[in-house]
């Protein structure tokens, strides 16, 4: 070889280079999201996105930080609309909100099981559901509470039922340019019941299975996570339980019914069989809790 080797510049399409934007309004944010299309990522709490970038699983060209947008960081409550939690409210802020703790305790408790204290100081419920993980901790209480997801999109701000929100593993109904601005939970007369999460390690772990079993104004609502491609409601079981007294026999029947409504997989965290066993336990305990609450 003779002469010098011409050096090429590395990393022109380098994995980690992106533009950062911090828009001040939803309109501005939407414009950026539309401009970059699939190559834009919304940055909110960042506890998932930044890990994905770090691990080389996401390669956005633009990161749109929505924390500069006014009005997304509040929790509001009134008797007509219920509770609205802004997209940028962190899970720890939720855990300290008196209304949430008093009226929607199950949601506060679910939020409190996400990650560590450090993570909950960053992570938001909007982010938790927008990732559409099948095991998102806050998804099951939201499903059980028939929450509405507030979305800023083509037609301005609209509401989408949480039941239409999750489409598949890591896929929501959101279109390019849509921004979750908050989550609204309707007001109810009474909510009883608990959120349960089964994990390998007690603290800072992902759910092997999680479940919300609550009674809203007399009706049992059951939602489960990590048992299907999306978090789900156990509608058939709920229908079966309607109007029934929760005896041990009824509970056992309900459990068998729930098993017909789920399709868990086996993975590194647990086998399919184990998930089914845990579903049984969580449903049994959840329903018994409702008896105790009466």
């Amino acid at each position: 070889m003779n002469g010098t080797v011409k050096k090429r510049k590395a990393g022109v399409d380098g994995v980690k280079n992106f533009e950062y934007y911090k828009p001040k309004s939803l309109e501005e944010a939407r414009e950026l999201l539309l401009k970059y299309g699939e190559e834009a990522s919304i940055l909110n709490g960042g506890t998932d996105l930044i890990v994905r970038i770090h691990d080389g699983l996401s390669h956005p060209k633009a990161v749109i930080d929505i924390k500069g947008i006014e009005g997304l960081s509040e929790i509001t409550y009134d008797e007509v609309d219920g509770l609205t939690i802004g997209a940028c409210v962190t899970l720890n802020q939720m855990g300290e909100n008196p209304v949430l703790l008093e009226k929607f305790r199950v949601l506060a408790e679910a939020g409190h099981t996400v990650g560590s204290c450090q993570v909950r100081n960053r992570a938001t419920m909007a982010g938790n559901i927008a990732n559409a993980s099948p095991l998102a901790d806050t998804a099951t209480p939201l499903l059980a509470l028939d929450a509405m997801v507030k979305v800023f999109g083509e037609e301005g701000e609209t509401e989408v039922s949480i039941h239409d929100f999750f489409v598949w593993v890591r896929k929501t109904c959101l279109q390019v340019g849509d921004i979750v601005t908050g989550i609204r939970i309707p007001n109810y007369g009474s909510i009883e019941g608990i959120y349960q999460k089964h994990t390998r390690r007690n603290e800072v772990d992902l759910a092997t299975v999680c479940a919300t079993v609550i009674k809203i104004d007399g009706e049992v609502h059951i939602a489960l996570g990590s048992v299907a491609p999306t978090p789900i409601r156990a509608r058939k079981t709920e229908a079966f339980l309607k109007g029934k007294v929760l005896t041990e026999e009824v509970i056992e029947e309900a459990i068998e019914m729930v098993l017909g409504e789920i399709a868990p997989i086996g993975d590194i965290r647990a086998s399919k069989d184990y998930r089914e066993e845990i579903v049984k336990v969580l449903i049994r305990r959840g329903l018994r809790e409702l008896i105790a609450a009466m």
Partner: peptide, 16 residues
């Protein structure tokens, strides 16, 4: 190795 991270290889926390 299927779990080479603290996400899926758990070591004890203070709670344990």
């Amino acid at each position: 190795a299927k779990n080479p991270s603290f996400v899926d290889y758990k070591i004890p926390t203070a709670d344990d």
